[in-house]
């Protein structure tokens, strides 16, 4: 554990809580891609199956349970409780175009051809692109609520902090995981355009809206 890893995890946690609270308090999931949230629920489920097979630490176990629990709670709020507010027409990204290639890649490029390991690899690859339906939705509607941009910023920042964590671990522990590093780089790059808009617009008090 180092400072980048810890702040990365906390940033991830903050993102998840911000989204849950936003939906809960406003009683609405307008502007939120349910498809991205389903993908994140799949990501956590396939990655954290190791809860059943290996214990790493109390921190590790509790964070995993919180992440996976919150992911399902978010999906429940969007598709069941506040379904009437879900903007399905604008959430039109075709997720099979992500899941199928990512599944194929996980079978082809992994650390070990074992079921749990392939599912872990699948989750790493899928996480790197899971935000695309949300970004697609924003580009389609041309705007995002400010609280939604805070969510996206925390979510993007988390993987960027993990990149520093991996540099740290390589330097001080000789540890590296090429699959996680490459996927983490891809994931972070996908947020760059959004980061730019967040800094130049949202942090200056303006709403995030894209030119028509």
């Amino acid at each position: 554990m180092n400072v980048f890893r810890l702040t990365g995890d906390l940033s991830h946690l903050a993102a998840i809580i911000i989204l849950l609270l936003k939906i809960w308090k406003s009683r609405s999931c307008a502007g939120i891609s349910g498809k991205s949230q389903i993908l994140f629920a799949i990501v956590f489920t396939t990655r954290y199956l190791d809860l059943l097979t290996s214990f790493i630490s109390l921190y590790n176990t509790s964070m995993k349970l919180i992440y996976v629990g919150c992911a399902y709670a978010t999906v429940y709020l969007i598709y069941v409780k506040f379904r009437a507010t879900y903007d399905g027409n604008h959430d039109s990204f075709r997720v099979e175009f992500l899941i199928v290639p990512v599944g194929g890649l996980a079978v082809l490029i992994n650390h070990s051809f074992a079921p749990l390991e392939i599912l872990w690899t699948f989750s790493i690859y899928l996480e790197s692109v899971a935000i695309l339906p949300q970004l697609f939705m924003i580009s389609k509607t041309g705007e995002a609520e400010t609280i939604t941009t805070h969510y996206l910023f925390c979510l993007g920042l988390y993987r960027a902090l993990y990149l520093f964590n991996w540099v740290w671990r390589f330097y001080f522990e000789g540890f590296f995981d090429m699959i996680a590093i490459v996927a983490g780089l891809v994931q972070t790059v996908l947020y760059c355009d959004f980061f730019y808009l967040y800094v130049t617009k949202v942090l200056k008090g303006k709403k995030l809206s894209l030119p028509a």
Binding site: R5, T53, N60, N110, H111, L116, D177
Partner: peptide, 10 residues
């Protein structure tokens, strides 16, 4: 090390 799990990161 670049090898299969257990994975200690989230």
């Amino acid at each position: 090390a670049d090898e299969a799990g257990p994975h200690d990161e989230l």
